[in-house]
Simulated assay, not measured.
Amino acid sequence: MSSIDVIIPVFNDYYPLRVSLLAYLDQTFDKNEFKIIVVDDGSTKDIKSVCKEFENQLNLIYIRKKREGRSAARNVGVSHSMAKRIVFSDADRFPARDFIEKHNTFQKEFYIGDIREIYSSKISNNEKKILNYRDKEIFRRVNYATLIYNLFDDNGLTDSNLSWLATFSGNMSLDRDEFEKIGGFDENFKDWGFEHFEFGYRYFNYYGKPLIYKKDCINWHIAHKRDLSNLKEKWLLSYKIFLEKYNSYEIRCLIDFMFGNISLQSYEKLINDNYYDLKWIKNTEKALFHKL
């Protein structure tokens, strides 16, 4: 039985998944001690053939299911795991060589890793070049991640009530029993949006402890063109599910932060009576606004 498993949901990301699996071949962590569970969420591309290519090189399980969204796919992945600790990544994210080693811990902690980003127009022709980014110090982050990491100090700790805003399901880990105790991801979220935030919010409120930012748990997102025409509409539909589930003041204020109407500091001030005593507030000079 593996001690730590990596759950990777995938929908049609054929070439990005191949790059990701290549990066798991030279992990510093013992290959016999981790398992990769790829959950094919009803892809129309031949994802199974990619996994078959690695079946003799990695401890890998391929599962195909009907299209139900990433929340359901991640939950199916966890249901096939017997490991103590679970790492969540995505098919279009490739890990640093010590990715699993850094996520592995005996502590019951919710780790959020460092999300970096590269762009490649021809993934199939640039696999080696893409993987070489693991040896470079030059990188970029999406604006949201850069903003949210301000909540945490140099040790990855925070006194904020908003650490759940850093729930990046493409690079995070926690103990399987903690995941299962709060019911996993909410499968009412079918599309891209707020399902990861909702999970982090539920974790924070159930266990009463903030998430931890592990800046040495690194993976790279292979950026791709995204259809932005209905992005706002998808966000609002996803947010509606979140709001109807809780209807709490924190969630009612969330949409104003996400659409840049209030700063991260103002959001904290609205929900935290200890605002003026918070270390992260004292250590942050300028107002932090998110832009969609």
Rank of each mutant, 00 (worst) to 15 (best):
P210M: 14
D175F: 07
F139P: 00
K209S: 05
S160R: 09
R226P: 00
S169G: 13
I222F: 06
I130Y: 10
F204Q: 15
Y133L: 10
E250L: 10
I241V: 11
E244K: 15
K128W: 08
N155D: 13
E233D: 14
E198F: 02
R141Y: 11
F204A: 11
A145N: 08
M172A: 10
Y207F: 15
L165T: 07
S169H: 14
K232F: 09
I218P: 01
I182R: 01
G156P: 05
E195A: 04
Y201V: 07
L162E: 09
K128Y: 12
D114I: 02
I182C: 01
F189C: 06
N126W: 05
R134Y: 03
K190L: 11
D227Q: 05
T158C: 07
H196T: 12
Y213S: 00
N125E: 15
I222S: 02
S163N: 13
G184Y: 09
S169A: 15
H224P: 00
C217A: 11
I138A: 14
K209M: 05
S124E: 15
I148W: 04
Y246W: 13
N150D: 09
K240C: 06
I148R: 01
Y239A: 04
G184T: 02
W235Y: 13
G193S: 04
S248N: 14
S160I: 10
I241T: 05
L131Y: 07
K225D: 09
N143G: 13
D227P: 01
L231N: 08
R141L: 12
Y149C: 03
L211H: 02
D177F: 07
A145Q: 08
F168K: 11
Y207L: 11
L157Q: 11
I218T: 04
Y206H: 15
L151F: 02
I148L: 13
E233A: 11
G193R: 06
R176H: 01
L131F: 06
F185Q: 06
